[in-house]
């Protein structure tokens, strides 16, 4: 067995642009290894999986220290106040939704009591029930 440090083998990195192998980080909060939706396509290979011919490469850079480690205060709502949060490390996304139309208006007084002018946007917070509020 070669010296573990010097035989660090390349891993399949799902997000190579991020600069460090995400799959190589077993301690991350999302428990990513077991929750991989496509059945472990990004499963990390350990150095032992490679024979002695593996080209020695440098260790991956240490991950950035989290805010709390830098002495910053943790946001009680989760994540750091300037971004991040439990999905930190995943690529950013573009979100799409249908275009709202000018229709199904409430009468004025009813709008005020419902907190919206638009019936389509009335989603009362009602855990466990199916009431639509329409």
């Amino acid at each position: 067995m070669m010296d573990r440090r010097n035989s660090f083998a390349p891993r399949r990195d799902p997000f190579p642009a991020m600069g460090h192998g995400y799959a190589a980080n077993p301690g991350n909060r999302m428990g990513r290894g077991s929750a991989e939706p496509d059945g472990g396509r990004f499963l990390a290979l350990e150095p032992e999986d490679f024979d002695g011919d593996a080209v020695p490469i440098a260790d991956p850079p240490a991950p950035e220290p989290r805010g709390a480690e830098r002495g910053e205060e943790e946001n009680p709502a989760g994540g750091m106040s300037c971004g991040g949060g439990p999905l930190e490390g995943y690529p950013l996304a573009m979100v799409y939704g249908p275009d709202q139309a000018w229709r199904e208006l409430y009468e004025e007084e009813e709008a005020l009591t419902n907190g919206t002018l638009f019936r389509e946007l009335n989603f009362p917070f009602c855990p466990g029930c199916r009431k639509s509020g329409r």
Binding site: E108, E109, A111, L112, T116, L117, F118
Partner: peptide, 11 residues
Amino acid sequence: IQTCNFVLQET
């Protein structure tokens, strides 16, 4: 007036 303000804001 409050009601008018609200629907104006929504609009």
